[in-house]
Design a protein around this nucleic acid. Sequence first.
DNA 1: ATTTGATAGATTGTATACAAAAAAATAAGA
DNA 2: TCTTATTTTTTTGTATACAATCTATCAAAT
Lengths: 243, 243
Amino acid sequence: MTVTREPVVAIKSGINLKDTTRRAKAQDLIRGAILNGYFSTGQKLVERELCALTGASRSILREALVKLEASGLIERQSYRGYRVATLNVQKVCEIFELRATLETLAAELFTERASPEETTALNQAYSNLEQCLTAFDLNRTRAAKQQYYDVLFNGCRNVEIRRSLENIIDRIYYLRSRLMQDPDRRMASLEEMRRLTEALIKRDRIAARAASIAHLEAARDAVLLRMAQDEIDSKAKTTSTAI
Amino acid sequence: MTVTREPVVAIKSGINLKDTTRRAKAQDLIRGAILNGYFSTGQKLVERELCALTGASRSILREALVKLEASGLIERQSYRGYRVATLNVQKVCEIFELRATLETLAAELFTERASPEETTALNQAYSNLEQCLTAFDLNRTRAAKQQYYDVLFNGCRNVEIRRSLENIIDRIYYLRSRLMQDPDRRMASLEEMRRLTEALIKRDRIAARAASIAHLEAARDAVLLRMAQDEIDSKAKTTSTAI
DNA sequence: ATTTGATAGATTGTATACAAAAAAATAAGA
DNA sequence: TCTTATTTTTTTGTATACAATCTATCAAAT
């Protein structure tokens, strides 16, 4: 009679460390399923199916969906349920405009507020990232990048900036994971981050600002290029303009 | 004789469907109760009591709470429920730092992207705001301010900026409602916004940036001053350092 | 053939019941 | 009286049942 509910989709993305409730787990599972492409963009998310997938009951699941909606990863319509948010060129530009502003602000503040320990930690985080990237270890790269940004956002002494970014960060990850497939872009990205790190450690606000903006504009352009290519590739069969 | 039914199609495919669910109402009620001081900062929010207050069931209520948590107005601890978030000096500074960045970005973009109609709409919105303020009509003032910012954020052609601000806007309102009690601050604020509006209409990006930053720094300082006064006033009885 | 309307099925919105954890109250011991 | 262990109550976390709304299907009418 007792039926054990076990998640079908096994995807880990460690952000919720303290919250061990099923809601947090369901949220992470759905989030991961979207990010790694198990759900395609624009796809309808039926609650009952998500229940089966995550092992959670509907009440729990719905709370998780509300949270995901707040991060913009999914969109809701009254009595019509949720869909995975779609990303067109316009939206990508907007997201990068916002991201560039927030990350650049964080970088500038870091040069003025970070402790000496934090600058060395940043340097170590960069070295680690460099190793992961040159070793082609994409899984560890993701963790390393996370760690780098952790140091950065702690050093800027403003929790709200990170909070704000967290509400778009899922969509950024989504874009980034597709980008990191490209070796050329990986190496270019690394070089950009090297310049940023250098400026941050030297506490050169102007240079840090410039490096941050340059990095994010390059990333944006790479995403847009990739989107254009994807569209050309898929044009033979479908006419979808959004990823 | 084909009959055009384009309007119907346009309405049906439109995205803007007003959310009239009980969840949205409960969310608004609780939000309002916090903003107007019915719940004090740091106060524990017991779900059953909120159910009685809003008339919603617990499942609905909890979904509303998840949404409010995303905006930072309330905070959650596992198995310990929600509390109204507290605001100390540090937090206020962080919020204003973020708000200044986002609003200033919006203002700068407005000067480059807004349509002629939008600049005139902004002018009208300002005039309206001026009337409300000089007439001491605080309720209408709030709506007028909302309208002003609606025009601004539409004109900057970046939905994500507004989305991001919405996640801290409740706490901004909370601060603002306390500030607007002070007639001096009201008038100073109006003058700052006049300068901003002027710069926006002239599409002077530099001036708009300066006006936006000046406005927000003044607002921040007024909040901090008010907090310091409140603390002195309440020091006779308690030793709380947060509002 | 297209449109209209009604019906049935599926899906979301809502309410309630049960389980697990935390907080409060009580009892026992020094 | 104070501290601590135990129990009781309260509160949150979770599961499920019911109601309102939407969607798909199909028959009838123009």
